[in-house]
């Protein structure tokens, strides 16, 4: 049961993360627009793109799920802050926001499920301890 949930969440998050690469790396209009508003064009767009790519890969490799989830959690937190502070929720941006929140929640769950993989802090997640 836990395994299925975990796989579903991982694939869901990885797919969303990886499909944004189309927009980020190809210099798509919408993407450039967003990052210009944030003042991160063009370097920020590439950096975020790379981080999302790494996070997506790490989420798919069974060994590094927790790391991928933390990285994706971080990037999505940044995205959510961006929406609240500057980007807003107009039209297409609303669906992007919802997706970000969805990935953010998935990754939170994944961190709790697979926290053991993290070297030092990981022991918090052992079953015998609270």
């Amino acid at each position: 049961m836990i395994k299925i949930t975990s796989i579903v969440l991982r694939i869901f998050s990885a797919v969303i993360l990886l499909q944004t690469l189309r927009f980020n790396f190809t210099g798509h209009q919408d993407s450039v627009e967003i990052f210009s508003e944030l003042g991160m064009e063009p370097s920020g767009r590439i950096i975020i793109g790379v981080l999302e790519l790494i996070a997506g890969i790490l989420l798919l490799i069974p060994f590094s799920i927790a790391w991928g989830a933390i990285l994706a959690w971080g990037v999505m937190s940044g995205a959510i802050i961006g929406h609240f502070t500057q980007l807003g929720f107009v039209d297409g941006r609303l669906s992007m926001f919802i997706l970000s929140v969805a990935v953010w929640v998935s990754c939170s769950f994944l961190i709790v499920l697979h926290g053991r993989q993290i070297p030092v802090i990981g022991h918090m997640f052992d079953k015998s301890k609270v």
Partner: peptide, 9 residues
């Protein structure tokens, strides 16, 4: 600058 949000997160 939005870049600060790396540290925020």
């Amino acid at each position: 600058s939005f870049y600060f949000h790396f540290l925020t997160v």
